[in-house]
């Protein structure tokens, strides 16, 4: 078998059109996941009554089931719920008008939330207890201390793990193909279907994923440098 380098390049260029979709899924799921994850981490760490067991079950169920299963459950389950509610309230909205990528956004955000709650929790645990005591001692409320003192430090402590999650979600975006969203892998399959050069097309896809991941790694390194500026003295 001979490798068709020219076709790798052609495929590469065509696959670039699917990059925005992959990035959109990654950005949305990571941002929503970070929001959900932070909330869940705080609920679990402070053992907030009622919410605490719910949060714990959420994390164990989501981490205990594959990301593809979440997507399928949302894809087949959500329309039943949405249509049911919509009908009961007499609204004209129907689940058919939800774009396919919407299902990917929702289900991947739920997935990312569970994994990121553990990332944020480890960050929160890394912040010394003395920090919140000092915040209390100058008269801050718990939410002020959280926002101003604890979360910023927890965030910089979580950065390396956070970049892992971002990369994981980027690669996970390929699953969106199951619900007919054309991501990078799906596009490769489409491009290759004209001449059956699947290997070349997937090789191009691999190069694109590697490139995007490399950019994420560089960005994390920059962010780490920026946010950990305060550790530059060495001892703390």
């Amino acid at each position: 078998m001979k490798l068709d380098f020219a076709f790798i390049w052609t495929a590469f260029l065509q696959l670039l059109t699917a990059v925005p979709t992959a990035l959109a899924i990654t950005v949305v799921s990571v941002s929503c996941g970070l929001l959900i994850g932070t909330t869940v981490a705080i609920i679990r760490l402070y053992k907030i009554p009622v919410l605490h067991p719910i949060a714990a079950s959420y994390v164990t169920f989501i981490r205990g089931t594959p990301m593809l299963t979440h997507l399928l459950l949302i894809y087949f389950g959500l329309p039943i719920i949405v249509d049911g509610i919509s009908e009961a309230l007499g609204l004209s909205f129907r689940s058919v008008s939800i774009p396919m990528i919407g299902f990917a956004y929702i289900s991947f955000s739920i997935t990312a939330g569970a994994y990121m709650s553990e990332v944020v929790r480890s960050g929160l645990l890394a912040v010394n207890r003395g920090q919140i005591e000092a915040a209390y001692s100058i008269g801050m409320t718990t939410s002020q201390a959280m926002r101003r003192i604890i979360l910023p430090q927890a965030f910089s402590a979580s950065l390396p793990n956070l970049s892992n999650s971002v990369i994981g979600m980027l690669h996970g975006s390929t699953l969106a193909f199951t619900v007919s969203v054309v991501d990078i892998n799906a596009k490769a399959q489409i491009v290759a279907s004209t001449n059956w050069k699947f290997f070349e097309a997937y090789l191009a896809a691999a190069l694109i994923f590697w490139g995007l991941t490399f950019i994420i790694e560089r960005l994390t390194a920059l962010a780490e440098k920026r946010f950990n500026l305060y550790n530059r003295g060495g001892v703390s």
């Binding site: 010394n128 003395g130 920090q131 005591e133 000092a134 915040a135 209390y136 001692s137 100058i138 008269g139 003192i149 910023p152 430090q153 910089s156 305060y230 550790n231 703390s236």
Partner: peptide
């Protein structure tokens, strides 16, 4: 807490 302030054994300055 607003009526008092504390100086800690381990300083506990806000690290960031």
């Amino acid at each position: 807490r607003q009526k008092s302030a504390m100086v800690f054994q381990q300083y506990n300055l806000f690290k960031h």
